[in-house]
Computed example of a mutant assay.
Amino acid sequence: MNLQEIGDRLAINELLARYCHALDRKDWPAFRAVFTENARIDFTAFGGPEGNPAELEAFLAPILDGLVASQHMVSTIIIDLDGNEAQARSAAIVPMTSASAEGAEQTLLNGLWYEDRLVRTPAGWRIAERRQVRGWVAMAG
């Protein structure tokens, strides 16, 4: 690996982490910043929409606002670089905790993969296409 490839891989890993933190913080400007303006996002694997970042934000915001907490985590990231484009696949586990009116908490665990097409932009690497691939769902607590 040369220095450019090492730098690209680090930047893409950082971008994928920023996506997770943006969702868990409900930081919608940071969420939009990880995508290209015309990005296509497919969240149909878990019953969500397919659309652009603004459409996904409109879908996700009320869900996340209704939770006590969420924690998006990605790992086992593989990246195939090709100049100014890249393909990435990452495993994700997403615990989402809700509370009943009485305060009892319950956590839904989602296991999935993200399949991404990324492009190098003047602002750095951005996600141009993202697709969720369903893995598993489990309840805890």
Results as ranks from 00 to 15, higher is better:
residue 81 L to I: 01
residue 92 A to L: 11
residue 30 A to D: 07
residue 15 L to R: 07
residue 140 A to E: 12
residue 1 M to R: 13
residue 75 S to I: 09
residue 60 L to F: 07
residue 6 I to T: 11
residue 76 T to D: 14
residue 74 V to S: 12
residue 67 L to G: 02
residue 87 Q to I: 11
residue 111 G to F: 06
residue 139 M to H: 11
residue 14 E to A: 10
residue 67 L to C: 04
residue 87 Q to N: 11
residue 108 L to T: 04
residue 58 A to V: 09
residue 73 M to V: 12
residue 119 V to Y: 01
residue 29 P to F: 03
residue 130 R to I: 08
residue 32 R to Q: 10
residue 38 N to H: 15
residue 58 A to S: 09
residue 41 I to W: 00
residue 49 P to H: 10
residue 56 L to C: 11
residue 125 W to N: 00
residue 23 L to A: 06
residue 136 W to Q: 09
residue 106 Q to I: 08
residue 46 F to E: 03
residue 110 N to L: 15
residue 78 I to D: 14
residue 91 A to C: 13
residue 112 L to Y: 02
residue 8 D to A: 01
residue 69 A to H: 10
residue 23 L to C: 10
residue 9 R to T: 03
residue 119 V to C: 05
residue 35 F to D: 02
residue 65 D to R: 11
residue 11 A to F: 03
residue 63 I to Y: 11
residue 129 E to P: 05
residue 37 E to V: 14
residue 33 A to C: 08
residue 99 A to F: 03
residue 119 V to Q: 07
residue 43 F to S: 08
residue 39 A to W: 01
residue 113 W to I: 09
residue 45 A to G: 01
residue 136 W to G: 01
residue 30 A to R: 05
residue 37 E to D: 15
residue 99 A to L: 04
residue 136 W to T: 06
residue 10 L to C: 09
residue 40 R to N: 14
residue 11 A to D: 12
residue 19 Y to C: 07
residue 117 R to Y: 10
residue 18 R to G: 12
residue 47 G to A: 07
residue 17 A to C: 09
residue 133 V to T: 13
residue 49 P to Q: 10
residue 93 I to R: 13
residue 138 A to I: 02
residue 95 P to D: 05
